[in-house]
Design a protein around this nucleic acid. Structure first.
Length: 786
RNA sequence: GGGCGUGUAGUCGAGUGGUAAGACGUCGCCUUCACACGGCGAAGACCUGGAGUUCGAUUCUCCACAUGCCCACCA
């Protein structure tokens, strides 16, 4: 073995070895039990930061552990290139738009562009050491993902779970497109709160006077003593003159403004709720590009109209007051435009009737950590709308639907034809309702969650390779971060229920986020992302992974260079211990446990195996890691130092204990530090007749033959005596290896005296009266200087 | 506004119903043949504040404050 561990050289070489030996290849024909992982497909948006490494490494710990525990591990990887970030990236790279290119051409462009990024991402993930089987790779805009998304839609339709309805939708007036809730963010904006006088002395405070023409009702709180007398009155809207009714609703806050609210179609989500709940009139005042529709204001932009209306109100004596306020509004996260609500026909998945079922399903999942379950329950309980799955966007997976040009009846594609793009293909059938033969394509595309909710099905090649699906489904584990429990996790449960009546996985492992050194989330926009490549370049992949192993599931961790240094030190320490093992132990040593201190360390090691295994089985990789680390340092600082002199004398018992204990240690650290442990394994243990890779070797067992209470007691006592003599020497100005003439022991200690002598350089150990009490041992000793 | 989490030495961070690991940093000693990316040792927290349960709480309950995240609101 090399004198110094060179992670750069080692890592590249071992990656080749793993690839050559197909160490991580999933074998569908294996008789072993399958452990399948529903890896989160990262968005193709340009960068990987250490925060990604943080959560992906945690899933990899589990994958590697399970592999060593004898499972046939199905560990795929995917890329999410079916979303706005990817669309933006590709549009920027090619200086074009999806619309200009045409859907199919643009998707082809995305696919080819993804290939380039794929290579880059894959390179990083491989360097990190993810034990992924890259032959299982998928992307969310691939033909297969399109086929599966459309298949899901068709099946849901057959079940009567799909419907199309005209409803208000979130709209960006600048880009002229529908948005999902995910694409919104809050922004503090300055605005004017104006008091407007309606008829009957009613005063309403609003920030959106330009919506007056869209006013369809007025609301007060039914408990509001001051205003409830207004209920039932018909009121005239200033300037525009329409008469609207005053209604009572508890959603009104009587303390806000004047306690009287106008409901316009639509100013905010409450307006939409009222519109639905009270079956109100629809008065659309803003078009798709954010221009006003009503007469006298037609064509004005929202803000111009607002100013104009305020002037008109003033002129008409309707304006009672105005004041500047600052309030949070929803804006499109991409362009910062304040969003509007427009009425559009949308496809929905009907599921509100199944809330109880979803709660029950959630109860059947194994949650790690357990408290994340609550977020799921809260979300399901709070659901108010069915799942809107259509988007008026250009890029995405199309709906496999046409509409009859005569009667408007939708015609659904046939499963065998999937995937289809209705805008470029025509159904060779006639309308099922009226028999007409000419159709109009559905131009909307599916919400990305409609696809990513199907990752278990995509992994299993649903509809084309049922055998594979049967083997991996339900999947064993969904690892993901906590911020998308309500989206990705929930929607996957929904689809799994509809299509398979089962939960999609047995367990979910929720990771936290990797934060920057100040504890802030890493964002491209904050400029605080840390590129993992130079970190790995400097400290090695194992050191970076070690950081991810420090925090438990669900916990965030800030990225501190000192934590990476800690990992690098562990690697170094392991390497040096390995050199000692290589030098001083024989290959395939015979089992020899004649010395009590050797039995002691072996017995301790089995205890650690037991503890660490139990923790790992509970997905507590961090606890396992801590336990194993702690043992390794203890082993190095105590056992190795105590019995070193025997190694040099070729002691067989010491050699056996050293070689086998160290093997247990590196095996248990292999999921965390795959490189250095593999290098050591290849250098020392491979020739003992083990597996081709440590990662295919079996996880250590808690071997009952190594349990030894007596040795544990005796060894602990010896260790305590030494721990006592060390500072004694220190306090007596003696070097640690300084010779002592004699140590007199009073009390019970039968074995281990030889190692005590050897470790502390004592000329002779005798029995007699001791002056100094050793804590927790019931022993007293006297120490005589040389 | 609702929900969930967190609050332990200068920093990071385990953990327990009986006064608290470890790491980094600091200080001292040691270049002894795996390792100075090391070893040995020292100083440093009474566990955010308050109330309660208990023989006893840092650990359980409640309240407060601080902080993070998710959801909702934003007339």
């Amino acid at each position: 073995m090399q004198e110094k561990y060179d992670h750069k050289e080692v890592e590249g070489r071992l990656r080749k070895l793993w690839e050559y030996e197909q160490v991580y290849k999933f074998n569908p024909d294996s008789v072993r039990e399958v452990y399948s992982i529903d890896t989160p497909p990262p968005t193709i948006s340009g960068v990987i930061g250490v925060s990604h490494v943080f959560s992906y490494a945690q899933a990899d710990f589990v994958a590697r552990f399970k592999r060593m525990r004898g499972y046939s591990v199905f560990y795929p990887f995917g890329f999410d290139n079916n979303g706005i970030p990817t669309e933006m990236l590709v549009e920027k790279l090619h200086n074009t738009t999806a619309e200009r290119e045409g859907r199919e051409k643009f998707i082809a462009l995305v696919n080819s562009e993804t290939k380039a990024y794929e290579q880059m991402y894959r390179d990083v993930w491989s360097r990190v050491g993810l034990s992924v089987d890259w032959s299982l790779l998928y992307t969310t805009i691939s033909t297969d993902a399109q086929r599966i998304s459309q298949l899901s839609f068709l099946r849901l339709n057959k079940m009567g779970r799909v419907y199309r309805k005209e409803t208000p939708t979130i709209w960006c007036p600048k880009e002229g497109t529908a948005l999902s809730q995910m694409e919104l963010k809050d922004k503090l904006l300055k605005s004017k709160f104006v008091d407007i006088r309606f008829s009957d002395g009613i005063v309403i405070a609003t920030t959106r006077p330009e919506l007056l023409p869209g006013c369809v009702a007025i609301f007060v709180n039914p408990e509001d003593g001051k205003n409830k007398r207004l209920v039932g009155k018909r009121v005239k809207v200033p300037i525009f003159g329409q008469e609207v009714e005053v209604l009572a609703d508890s959603r009104v806050d009587p303390t806000k403004g004047t306690g009287v609210v106008m409901c316009c179609t639509f100013g905010d989500l409450t307006d939409i709720e009222w519109y639905k709940a009270y079956n109100l009139e629809l008065r659309i005042v803003i078009d798709e590009h954010g221009r006003m529709l009503p007469e006298h204001f037609k064509g004005l932009k929202i803000k111009e109209a607002r100013q104009r209306i305020i002037e008109d109100l003033k002129a008409g004596g309707y304006l009672l007051g105005e004041r500047e306020i600052e309030h949070a509004v929803n804006v499109h996260e991409r362009c910062g435009t304040e969003i509007e609500f427009l009425v559009k026909k949308q496809w929905y998945i009907r599921y509100l009737d199944l809330k109880e079922t979803f709660i029950k399903l959630g109860n059947g999942l194994e949650w790690h950590p357990d408290y994340m379950h609550v977020r799921y329950d809260n979300w399901v309980n709070g659901l108010q709308w069915d799942w809107a799955i259509s988007r008026q966007r250009y890029y995405g997976i199309p709906f496999p639907v046409w509409y009859c040009r005569k009667c408007g009846e939708p015609l659904f594609a046939e499963e065998k034809d999937l995937p289809v793009n209705p805008t470029t293909t025509n159904p060779e059938r006639r309308c099922t309702k009226c028999g007409f033969g000419d159709f109009m394509p559905e131009s909307d595309v599916m919400d990305t969650w409609a696809t990513s909710s199907l990752t278990p099905m995509i992994n299993g090649r649903w509809g084309s390779n049922e055998e594979l699906l049967g083997k991996i489904y339900p999947m064993s584990l969904r690892p993901q971060a906590h911020d998308i429990i309500t989206f990705w996790l929930f929607t996957t449960v929904v689809k799994a229920y509809f299509h398979t009546k089962k939960l999609p996985w047995k367990a979910v492992l929720i990771s936290g986020h990797g934060l920057d050194q100040h504890g802030r989330p890493m964002h491209k926009s904050l400029g605080n992302t840390v590129d993992p490549k130079p970190v790995m370049e400097k400290y090695g992949a194992d050191a970076l992974r070690n950081w991810a192993a420090l925090s438990k599931p669900g916990e965030d961790a800030s990225f501190q260079e000192k934590d990476i240094v800690t990992g690098a030190r562990l690697v170094n320490k392991l390497w040096n211990a390995a050199k000692l093992v290589e030098r001083l132990t024989a290959k395939n040593p015979e089992r020899d446990t004649s010395n009590v201190m050797d039995r002691w360390i072996l017995a301790k090691a089995t205890q650690i195996v037991k503890e660490a295994t139990a923790m790992f089985e509970e997905y507590n990789y961090a606890g396992a890691k801590r336990t194993i680390d702690g043992f390794f340092w203890f082993f190095s600082d105590n056992y190795l130092e105590f019995v070193k002199y025997r190694f040099y004398n070729g002691d067989k018992s010491a050699s056996y204990a050293l070689r086998s204990t160290f093997l247990m240690i590196i095996k248990m650290l292999a999921p965390f530090m795959p490189y250095v442990t593999e290098e050591i394994y290849q250098g020392i243990y491979r020739e003992d007749g083990g597996a081709v890779s440590i990662h295919l070797s079996s996880w250590p067992e808690d071997d009952p033959a190594l349990h030894d209470e007596k040795a544990l007691l005796c060894g602990d006592t010896v260790q305590r005596i030494i721990a006592f003599i060390r500072p004694w020497k220190h306090n007596n100005n003696l070097a640690l290896n300084a010779e002592l003439a004699e140590v007199v022991i009073e009390g019970e200690l039968e074995e281990g005296l030889e190692d005590l002598k050897g470790a502390m350089n004592i000329r002779k150990v005798t029995r007699g009266r001791g002056e100094l009490e050793i804590p927790e041992t019931g022993l007293r000793i006297s120490i005589l200087k040389a």
